[in-house]
Design a protein around this nucleic acid. Structure first.
Lengths: 163, 163
DNA sequence: GGAATATTACTCGGATACTTTCTGTCCGAGTCTACCAGG
DNA sequence: CCTGGTAGACTCGGACAGAAAGTATCCGAGTAATATTCC
């Protein structure tokens, strides 16, 4: 059970986009260059973010990706589900209904204890991720190294401006 | 990010073993028959439980698997980690150290904010799983349908006794 | 009849194919920019 | 000088291979019970 590395990639990219600001779209190639990632594959993951409504994309020159909402309105859970999908990590196969001694349909009107435990754990996991927004992450980074925010923004804007 | 279905399988089997009792080993084939699962593959997963020290195995006739500890001393997290491995689901690739503007080694002495958030969420997930033991699950099943425990035990012991 | 022994059947354990998912890459459709020609 | 049109280049978007993990299966090593034989 390993999380796709695309989640980490797009989280870093989302922070970059948050720092650059929504008025300045950033192409996937630039995000890939800044984070030293394969551009085409990163683009694929950013498309998933677009389908989830987290980022907006514009084609053509001066195009690229920008955050579709305020960083404070995008949670880490939003990003994770956009990449990993909405399905639960644990999927109950209803084993209790199979075999020579199946559970009665009456008993099966509620989820089994195992599924309930897994669901509770996953809910706790999701709760933590939903409690953290991109704005929270950005604020924590800024608290540790305040110059990062502006320096990164300048790198992205400077890379596009000279043209 | 989907959890192996083997986790569900062995959790059901562990409950079966808890109900049968440690003095009566149950072969993998019987567990597979009872839960309508492929016997050979289930055996493979049970081996993982053995390596983790959760179950003990004996070869030969009248052999099989039995719980190595009291059901109250085996948590759901123990079973999950035995099947899925000890690694974290999120693995930080240290993207911040790469690219044209890498983070300084000084900044990297502590995990980045993204990794911290993921770790906190995973910790909450593990906490819930660690808080539930096989004895808890067994008690919940018994509370809902008290006859299940003895009936299942009889099925397993009766299947072996007539020989 | 009892005990030692050889046999037999049963169990786990790891080594071996097959399927699905994840990872990575490529090229085409659409679009905005910039240039160029004409008024 | 200003305006309209056209060509060009840049971007996303989905379709196409390769790698890794998960899934499923089989057969052999070891063991305990059993049947047999001898005392």
């Amino acid at each position: 059970m390993r999380m796709s590395q695309g989640v980490e990639w797009v989280l870093h990219c989302c922070l970059n986009l948050a720092w650059v600001g929504p008025e300045h779209p950033v192409p996937a190639a630039k995000l890939a260059e800044f984070n030293d990632l394969p551009g085409a594959y990163l683009n694929k993951h950013l498309q998933a973010l677009g389908r989830a409504g987290l980022v907006a994309s514009t084609s053509g020159p001066r195009g690229g990706f920008r955050l579709a909402r305020d960083p404070g309105e995008i949670t880490v859970l939003d990003v994770v589900t956009a990449i990993e999908g909405h399905g639960d990590t644990f999927h109950c196969a209803e084993i209790r209904q199979r075999g020579p001694m199946p559970a009665t349909p009456q008993q099966c009107r509620v989820p089994c204890e195992i599924a309930t435990t897994m669901r509770r754990a996953e809910s706790a996991w999701r709760g933590e991720l939903a409690a953290t927004t991109l704005a929270d992450l950005s604020a924590q980074v800024e608290a540790k190294s305040p110059q990062t925010l502006t320096v990164v923004r300048e790198w992205f804007t400077a890379a596009a401006a000279p043209k």
